[in-house]
Simulated scan of single mutants.
Amino acid sequence: MVRAGLTTERVVAAAADLADSAGFDKVTISALARGFGVKDASLYSHVKNLGDLRTRVALLAAEEFIDRIEAAVAGRAGKDALIAFADAYRTFALEHPGRYAATRYHVDPAIVAEAPAYHRTLRTTSAMLRAYGLTDPDLTDAVRLLRSTFHGFTDLEAEGGFEAARPVQTSWERAVEGLHFLLSNWASATGAKA
Rank of each mutant, 00 (worst) to 15 (best):
A84D: 04
L50M: 05
K48F: 03
G98V: 00
E157V: 04
T8L: 14
R68Q: 14
V168L: 10
G161H: 08
R123D: 13
I29Y: 03
L145Q: 14
H96I: 05
M1R: 15
A84M: 05
V143Y: 14
A72K: 05
K79D: 08
G35H: 07
G178H: 06
V168R: 11
T170C: 12
Y44M: 12
R147D: 14
Y89K: 03
E114S: 09
A175H: 13
K193F: 11
H46D: 03
L182S: 13
I111Y: 01
A41S: 13
R144H: 15
L53V: 00
L82W: 00
F36H: 04
E159A: 15
A19W: 01
A22S: 09
K193T: 09
D25E: 15
E159Q: 15
F85L: 10
T140Q: 14
E163S: 15
T140R: 14
K39D: 15
G78L: 01
G35P: 07
T103M: 12
K79G: 01
T28F: 02
T125F: 10
A22Q: 07
T190L: 05
F92H: 11
W172L: 06
K48G: 03
V176L: 03
D87C: 08
V27L: 02
F24K: 06
L139S: 04
V73N: 08
E157M: 10
H96D: 05
L146C: 09
L122N: 12
R68Y: 06
A189D: 12
A117C: 04
R120D: 02
R104G: 11
A127H: 13
D155N: 15
V57M: 00
R68F: 13
A81M: 02
E64F: 04
D87K: 10
D141A: 15
L183W: 00
T140P: 13
T8Y: 08
V168F: 12
S45M: 12
E70R: 07
T154L: 11
A164V: 10
L94Q: 04
T55L: 01
R166Q: 08
E114D: 10
F36K: 07
S171H: 11
A61C: 01
S148C: 13
L134T: 04
A61S: 01
S126R: 15
G51H: 05
R10L: 06
S45D: 13
E95Y: 00
L43E: 03
V73I: 13
A165M: 10
L156M: 11
L129F: 01
A110H: 06
L6P: 08
G35K: 12
L182H: 09
S148N: 15
T170V: 09
T190Y: 04
V47S: 01
S184K: 10
T91M: 10
A127T: 14
E64Y: 03
K79V: 02
R123T: 14
L60W: 00
G161T: 05
D67Y: 06
L43Q: 10
E64D: 12
R99T: 02
D20Y: 00
S30E: 14
